[in-house]
Design a protein around this nucleic acid. Structure first.
Lengths: 217, 217, 217, 217
DNA sequence: CATGAATGAGTCTTCATTCAT
DNA sequence: AATGAATGAAGACTCATTCAT
């Protein structure tokens, strides 16, 4: 289950390294066994560490799971936020960068998607997700809504509402994530991104051209 | 936990009634406690029945969960299929009926959405879902794709692909479901349906008018 | 598991027939699943009857098992007792008949040996056996001891004790039964009987000849 | 049920000690409650340990039972094998040592005999016994057969077959064990051993004298 | 007499957490 | 810091027994 040799660490490692090691093993365990099938024994075996360490570095199993979720959420947020905060980028390009981040290989892979949907699937973890990650989701939706508003103003688009587009985008993101997780043969990162961009082309024909999908592949 | 008085049934009920009763209690339990938090004790307490009865009417807990999933899938399929199989309905109206079914109060409520996402969230239940419900998902996607193709042919639309639209619809369905489950304050059945229809209006402006959303509310 | 067609009885059968039917199914169940693996469901399925019938015809499961044991013990006792009670038979021939009964196909088959040893193997059933069947075992040992005493007197054998021979016979009976059950490839009814008779030949050379084994085969 | 005070061990004991402790408690439990009446709760209570510990040190209940059987079989084998492997001992004396081992107080007591017959009595445990201990039984039978062949050659005995004697000995061993377990008032270790030796005296009068029984008491 | 649905106590097993070393 | 043995509560499943029909 774990190739322990290369993972063996010096007997005492800096706490932060141990925490990351355990979080990484937790992601692997959740994606393999599911949230309820993830036991501390499996996590520590995967990490090549001893069982007792989890309750030493984290207060409880729940704390480990919370830390794992936060870790993923931060990673995700960093990706789209830093990219779309660059000064000399147009609103449309920022929007494209957010879409791009959503389907980036680092984020949108089955290992990590499994974890997201593991949290969505059960009521208590869902509550935890809402508290921890909900604000980040809302922040992103607000950001895309503002970008859409800028584009609408720029392009003089009528009959289209920035909040509607951003709600659509959020749902497309989640829906494609789910389908990529469920039916990887029919849904891929690339096709998902292309189809989201095709939606933006429908909305904002002057700002999104047929070539965009390839540009950011 | 269970208000037992009104639920008390005659001591011996027809097996099918007991099965339905247990499936209904299972849906409630999953939506309340999650899939892994759903214990047979909670299910039977919810149903006002004794613990041992589940393994009498169903072979195992897993069989109960499978039956629950199948029950939901059949209910969902029946709703959109019978509606969209009527003879004298246009392709566009059939598509609207499918969208309508997807966000119908009978299907799209937090109690039942919880169950869907409970199955999506863990690897083994996800596999079960894929085997049991995957074919129905694909059937629906094929149906919407055909309807889109008909609409495209009718309207002479260019630059739009029926498979892309059906993939988008599938993802919008799932994505809005998730957001309705996660953020019921910001996402409602009505707004979701309206936004999906706004997407169809973008795609097929001659076939979907601004009034459609209200028509099928 | 049960070929139910030929076993189906008229809906109401004489109680004694039902009891025998259930006892027979119990023997089959014990030999197949062991004593603890024998459930009333398996017994009634084997008998082609409904679950509730056992507690109708027998007070409890334990009563069924007790009746089964008694049935076997009576059958066994009848076989050796009636044979060795004939008036014009010599003591040696009576002894041979007892040995013969012990390894008779009707008694000494794996199906029934399983039941005997099932009762020997657990403390409570062992206690039940002791109470129900112990007296019959003792009766047989006394009978063989008397026959040995007669033979010793007749033959003028010295250095041999009738109680020792009867104790040896009892143990040989049980030991061969066990080995026939455990290792049917190495131990058969026929070889066991021949070897017990070879022991009697060692004890009483004038009364048991080399041909005895075949005579009673 | 358990006198816990004297059994309390240091909180962390070497694994092998815990395993032995649990095996010992298992023997006690089987002899008291039978195989199917032996629950992990009773075993651990008997051992003065907590319920969960069995599945920590053994994979399952079945593994514990298997280990218990192996433990007894090894103990038994060691006793007769080391004794009868001494270099300067005659074949007849080796045979006596095997008989002696069979009825040694360490082996042939009701506590341990209960366990043997518990395994004989049910089909699945019987199968386990056959696989684990069958080879040891056969090894012993082969050893006794060889010793008998040596004695026959030495003594020039005729009309007697070494395989027959060894089969008789096996069955006597088992049969006396059963009777000692069932009827301890009428069958004792000492009388059983004396009677088995009396059989050997019948077979090999030059090698086994009347005094042998007492010599090895 | 007969059926089989219903009950609930009892068992094995899992696993988060604790703690002696 | 780290280890892993130990604990015990909780859950799925079994099954003798009861009882309405």
């Amino acid at each position: 289950m774990s190739d322990n040799l290369p993972k063996k660490q010096p007997r005492t490692a800096p706490p932060e390294a141990r925490r990351e090691q355990l979080i990484d093993a937790t992601i692997t365990a959740i994606s393999t066994y599911g949230l309820s099938g993830t036991t501390l024994a499996k996590v520590t075996a995967e990490a090549g560490l001893s069982l007792g360490l989890v309750n030493f570095h984290f207060k409880s199993k729940e704390a480990l799971l919370t830390a794992t979720l936060t870790h993923l959420a931060d990673e995700h947020r960093a990706l789209w936020f830093t990219r779309s905060s660059q000064p000399d980028v147009s609103a449309a390009d920022k929007l494209k960068l957010i879409v791009d981040a959503q389907f980036h290989a680092k984020i949108c892979n089955r290992r990590k998607l499994s974890v997201w949907f593991a949290f969505f699937g059960e009521s208590r973890p869902r509550k935890a997700y809402r508290e921890l990650t909900g604000p980040l989701d809302e922040e992103r939706q607000i950001a895309t809504s503002r970008l859409c508003a800028d584009i609408i103003a720029e392009g003089g688009y009528s009959g289209i509402d920035s909040d509607t587009v951003s709600a659509m985008l959020e749902s497309l993101f989640d829906g494609f994530w789910l389908n990529i997780l469920m039916y990887p043969d029919r849904f891929t990162r690339q096709s998902a991104k292309a189809q989201v961009l095709s939606y933006l082309r429908l909305c904002f024909p002057q700002h999104f051209t047929r070539l965009d999908a390839e540009t950011f592949a």
